[in-house]
């Protein structure tokens, strides 16, 4: 079980790296969905491991919101604004992937230095969530189109969830639910903004 949890957490990081290495938005949304699924499975493992009933519910919520509803909204928005790939990245693909790798190295150093407290599966989870957080932030900075920035934002959110779930054996359920709902609202609003921008400036395309 611990090994499986490890595998899922590492796959969260890998999907974040893949996201940095792909210029395609659709693929990015699919990867986000996959990442959330891994997060959900990880939560399930933690739940099984620590036998916390609140985490089972959290698992269900993650599946519902992050794996299904938010990607669905994003796809829907994408269909309405018709952009397929981002052409202007602020940083080339190999460079940003290498940057993501160095961020992983960095977060590993930080994790080794900082973490002394007990975390569910060792400081590994902290490394991974920190690295995912940083890669998400990098995505938000280096991408020029709004869509990828949203994906970066969602990646950051996943990283925080991961950290939260492992630090305290799960956040209080109410907080978690609130955060999820907040996230959903944020995505909805951003989708509306995208569509609005698209309508108001058909020619110039989507630049934030």
């Amino acid at each position: 079980m611990v090994r499986l949890a490890e595998l899922f957490s590492v796959l969260i990081l890998i999907s974040a790296v893949l996201n940095a290495g792909s210029p395609f938005i659709k693929f990015g949304i699919k990867l986000y969905s996959f990442q959330s699924l891994m997060l959900a499975l990880y939560t399930l493992m933690v739940a099984l491991y620590s036998n916390t009933s609140a985490l089972y519910l959290s698992f269900l919520f993650i599946i519902l919101f992050k794996v299904v509803i938010i990607p669905y909204f994003l796809f829907n928005t994408l269909k309405r604004v018709e952009i397929k790939r981002e052409i202007d990245l602020a940083l080339g693909i190999p460079e940003s992937v290498l940057f993501a790798g160095s961020l992983t190295l960095l977060s590993n150093i930080i994790a080794e230095r900082v973490i002394k407290t007990t975390v569910t599966f060792g400081s590994l989870i902290f490394t991974i969530s920190l690295a995912t957080f940083l890669i998400g932030a990098m995505l938000m900075i280096t991408r020029k189109t709004l869509f990828s920035q949203i994906i970066g934002f969602l990646t950051i959110d996943n990283a925080i969830f991961l950290a939260g779930n492992s630090f305290t054996h799960g956040m209080p359920l109410l907080v978690e639910f609130g955060v999820l709902f907040d996230l959903l609202a944020a995505v909805l609003i951003l989708s509306l903004i995208i569509i609005h921008i698209k309508k108001s400036s058909l020619k110039t395309g989507l630049r934030s």
Binding site: V10, L13, I14, V17, L18, G21, S22, I93, P94, V97, L98, A100, G101, T104, L105, N108, L124, T127
Partner: peptide, 17 residues
């Protein structure tokens, strides 16, 4: 290079782990 850089970083992550 995009694809191969991903392969490189994945192996780097494996190495760190």
């Amino acid at each position: 290079p995009n694809l191969l850089s991903i392969a490189f970083i994945i192996s780097l992550i494996a190495m760190i782990l």
